[in-house]
Design a protein around this nucleic acid. Sequence first.
DNA 1: GAACTAATGTAATATTATTACATATCATTG
DNA 2: CAATGATATGTAATAATATTACATTAGTTC
Lengths: 192, 192
Amino acid sequence: MNMQTRTPASSPADNGYGFSDRIQRQLEHAAHLCAGQGGRMTPQRRDVLGLILTATTPVGAYDLLEQLKTSGRKPAPPTVYRALDFLLEHGLIHRIERLSAFVPCTHLQHDHPHDHSHGPAETCLHSAQFLICRSCGGVTEIADAPRVLDVLKSICGKKNFTMQSASVEVEGVCEDCAPATRGQKGPAPAPN
Amino acid sequence: MNMQTRTPASSPADNGYGFSDRIQRQLEHAAHLCAGQGGRMTPQRRDVLGLILTATTPVGAYDLLEQLKTSGRKPAPPTVYRALDFLLEHGLIHRIERLSAFVPCTHLQHDHPHDHSHGPAETCLHSAQFLICRSCGGVTEIADAPRVLDVLKSICGKKNFTMQSASVEVEGVCEDCAPATRGQKGPAPAPN
DNA sequence: GAACTAATGTAATATTATTACATATCATTG
DNA sequence: CAATGATATGTAATAATATTACATTAGTTC
Ligand SMILES: [Zn+2]
Ligand SMILES: [Zn+2]
Ligand SMILES: [Zn+2]
Ligand SMILES: [Zn+2]
């Protein structure tokens, strides 16, 4: 048996994704988080999370699959979907329903390497709110979500509906892209 | 111009879905609504809407396809998806992203046959909020949505994000199903 | 190390959705 | 009415997303 307790990172043969230092720190942070929840951050899961963290826009399952193939292994869909399920369950990523694609939980992005009291598990597991830009494809996780959740909770309370998870997805044009689309046809006004 | 304004109903050969009187009234209402928007309620679209109105839970595109086959025609996927696109654009149905399935806009369900001032186009086009029951599969469109939308608008305002559409989907257990699941394992507490 | 559990590999298939192009239907107008 | 152009539908093929079932491997416990 391997005494070296080889670090549960990408295997020597395929850690060639060249994850930046910043992302490697985030991956370590994530590993600690799910360790605390009794989860194991395996190489597969780590690679998938790393790829999602690296991307600037939501990543689809088959995009991940393609990228993973460039590495040593030749994974099939179940491999990716299993890794995604794990990451979702541990609050490390979110699924954008409208895009059938995945983004990292924003709490991983902000470096607070040892602040486990503010982990995703407590703040946004099973519930998240997003702004999706149609122009650049960027997705922003809304930080001041409690207000939205409070309204939803109050509505559910009135209807005796037991909320287990909730997703809010707003589609439109982000601040950076607004100038580009201005004057062309003008984005539709907000609903209602 | 056609004076007879021949009713855009299912063609004689295939109106055998047996839509109830109530649903036929809703279909007529819908026809008026989209006529007002310059849209044509063709037999295909009418049949698809009728099937969605008839179902008690969200209906998938391929479910619709199967049901349509029992009628005279032998439609293919594009037929259904085109009808769905039309109905979505005219605010007559909504897509539940989490289920890849479709429900009627609740404004069609409440009979107000001639009140076009309160049509879907004005109240919920491009934006809707739902409670999805995991137990019975039922979906409820939230009526007092303005509060949710107001919070979202305020958030978007702060971030200079131009909202074009928004969807809110809350998953959990509805009032009717709560007794059934009580004591088994208990639904997870609400997020946050 | 045996036994158990968790994770991964593998092949096949299921489900949802779109593309591209041909045909038909409807409204307008000469 | 015939020609036209726009809208809608038919059809075949394929793309994109996701799951099932079962075999194998790796980690953990005893
Ligand atoms: Zn999050
Ligand atoms: Zn943008
Ligand atoms: Zn509606
Ligand atoms: Zn229910």
